[in-house]
Computed example of a mutant assay.
Amino acid sequence: MADDYARGLQAGASGLVVTVAEAEPLVRAWRDRLDPSARASVPAHVTVLFPFLHANRIDEGVCAAIGGALGRHQSFEAWFGHCGRFPGVLYLAPESDTGFRRLTQAIVERWPENPPFGGQFDDVVPHLTIAQCQDEAVLEKAEADLLTGLPVVAQVSSVDLLVHDGTQWRQRASFPLGEARLR
């Protein structure tokens, strides 16, 4: 959910994310310092879709539709073995991003009026943001430290719906992926 803090968020903004709890021990200190979303209570994550619907449009029917769209996809293992960069941004990159792309595609097919990141990018690259709006020296220092703790391996078994309350992000719901429903 990068760059949303530069624009300022209204209460009711929402997004769908895969929380990557397994990455927290490695990335938390860097994210707390260098990623505004961490300071707004967003856990280490890979964005599935941001922005999503305004919170006042999310009811039981929408939640059922999200669950249906995501529940057709099996849980999968994500392996984060290296860092990547966008201008001013450092992130952990999954070795295979196919599972994340499929989750995004499933939601966008159901809600095509909500393209990822408002349609500002031709190709949305799944990633776990560590730092944004930072200079090169800061990114290099963070990357050198992170590389000593990689890889991070995570089991992706659900997608969380986060809603912004005007100050912080709060989890509103969690949607299990196919295999995870059976556990």
Rank of each mutant, 00 (worst) to 15 (best):
M1Q: 06
M1G: 07
A2C: 08
Y5S: 12
A6Y: 07
A6F: 07
R7A: 13
G12Q: 00
G15W: 02
L16M: 13
V17W: 09
A21C: 10
E22M: 07
P25E: 13
R28K: 12
R28N: 10
W30Y: 14
D32H: 15
D32I: 15
R33W: 11
D35W: 07
A40E: 10
S41V: 09
P43C: 13
A44V: 03
H45A: 05
L53K: 00
H54N: 11
R57T: 10
D59S: 03
G61R: 11
L70R: 02
Q74F: 04
S75T: 09
F76V: 01
A78R: 00
W79P: 02
F80Y: 05
H82R: 13
G84E: 01
G84W: 01
P87T: 15
P87W: 15
V89N: 01
S96E: 09
T98I: 12
R101M: 13
R101N: 11
Q105K: 07
Q105P: 10
I107D: 05
R110T: 09
R110K: 12
P112F: 08
P116G: 02
F117Q: 13
G119I: 11
F121A: 04
F121N: 04
D123P: 07
A131T: 03
Q134S: 10
D135N: 12
E136M: 06
E136S: 14
E136W: 03
E136K: 15
E136N: 06
E143A: 12
L146E: 00
L146S: 00
L146R: 01
L147K: 01
L147W: 06
G149L: 02
A154D: 01
S158P: 02
V159K: 01
V159T: 08
S174W: 12
P176W: 03
L177F: 05
R183W: 11
